[in-house]
Design a protein around this nucleic acid. Structure first.
Lengths: 165, 165
DNA sequence: ATAAACTTTCAATATTTATTGAAAGTTTAA
DNA sequence: TTAAACTTTCAATAAATATTGAAAGTTTAT
């Protein structure tokens, strides 16, 4: 398969995958492009490659920086900003896990906690509610702890874990 | 907190969480409602509780059934269909993992494989491409294996795993 | 201080995705 | 059969989300 075809296929697939993970297409595609690019790219180059507008490129590059998975590079004698992403996939997974933990798990745990001290006269209803939200909270906390460990641990932890399974 | 307030808060939060996981709001809310309901519910009751249309209710109930996390119940002497979801959170997580594995991991692995035999004259470009997609494939396969194990294993596997950490 | 080079913002617009509701389809009991 | 009771479908519509592009903002070299 020709490079250009492979590249487009990969960028396309990454974009689609992103969409089903709450990451918008452009953001995922910019990331894919940076992943396979040996050199850091400018906003201009990203716009050109992905056929997206300046505003779109800029906003999504910022979002990626905000997620901690893309970095600015400055080159001496140049005004332009160059962008790159780390090529270590495990590190990428760690960063994404960390962000999602912060953005999603923390809020749902908060709600589960709030909702825990429910009161009402229909015991069957309130009991079921308490049971389910309690279980959910317990499970969520366990998963949370696991992700926390994953994000903090050293590079080999994950592979050691895989061995144990 | 009053039952009705807690219930609404929970359903709302579950809907929001669903949205950032590629599960639409109504689908997530129907699931939330069934989770906390001690009895199986009819389409009518679900429509009423969530203030959604018949079509919406029906389609999303079907989708939940399709995901394997909601079940039909028939009652003797009644024409109506009743719907319920399992209350075992671990089992739910297992089912969701299984579906996402099928729907998301399998396709991306397929693309990564296809794209692997790239050719081109720019060695720097093609090498970087091969390296990244190879790494990505390796990592994805490892995660895939882990999920596969999780979905197949017995009830205590997950808790034993947590102990090991 | 100026202007060229670049980045950011955001209202307008387009695209995608979800929802409605009425009509068509199906099942069951009599 | 028939008709009531229920479920499913789907074109139209609404809602949510992403994208554009031009204008405003910022930075830097001179």
């Amino acid at each position: 398969m020709e490079y250009i075809e492979a590249k487009n296929k990969f960028i396309q697939a990454w974009g689609t995958l992103g969409s089903s993970w709450g990451i918008n297409k452009a953001m995922a595609q910019i990331h894919a492009l940076l992943l396979i690019s040996p050199e850091a790219l400018t906003t201009e180059e990203i716009m050109e490659e992905l056929k997206i507008s300046r505003g779109n490129a800029n906003m999504n590059i910022r979002a990626l920086i905000d997620w901690g998975i893309v970095e600015k590079e400055h080159r001496i004698g140049e005004r332009k900003e160059y962008f790159s992403t780390g090529k270590d996939i495990l590190e990428l997974a760690r960063q994404v896990s960390k962000e999602r933990r912060k953005r999603e798990i923390a809020p749902i745990l908060k709600v589960l906690e709030q909702v825990q001290d429910v009161s009402g006269d229909n015991e069957k209803l309130t009991n079921e509610f308490k049971n389910v939200t309690e279980d959910l909270k317990g499970f969520t906390q366990k998963v949370d702890g696991m992700i926390e460990k994953f994000t903090r641990s050293d590079k080999n932890w994950f592979y050691k874990l895989l061995m144990k399974l």
